[in-house]
Amino acid sequence: MLKKADIAAAAAILLAAWLIFAFTLPKSKPGNTVLVTVDKQEYGRYPLSEDRTVEIKGIGTNLLVIENGSAYVKSADCPDKICVNHKPISESGEAIVCLPNKVVVEIN
């Protein structure tokens, strides 16, 4: 009752479904992106796995460095430098906050 093409079509549909599943899932999985917000507005999202330097220009300037799977603030023009002194973050839910510049660097 089933032809070869039927099975091929079913296999193709299942493969497509699996690909879409695999492709869309990591976005919702926590622990691999760095989310930067300035004054509650999203500034950017960066993968934790890629090394890069981001100059966050909002109210002030904070230099975000993503290196070896963790993120830290290298320098900032804020007066208290709490963000700069914060240890590098890498775990889901961790965040570095710079209150004067209203910058939040969050891992999710």
């Binding site: 009752m1 079913a10 549909i13 299942l14 479904a17 699996w18 879409i20 869309t24």
Partner: peptide, 24 residues
């Protein structure tokens, strides 16, 4: 909503299989 897509595709496939057998 795109997260529903794979599930809906598989469900449609399975239901289509049953419906196809019945119609035959």
């Amino acid at each position: 909503l795109i997260y529903y897509l794979p599930l809906l595709m598989v469900a449609g496939l399975a239901c289509g299989l049953l419906v196809g057998f019945t119609t035959a």
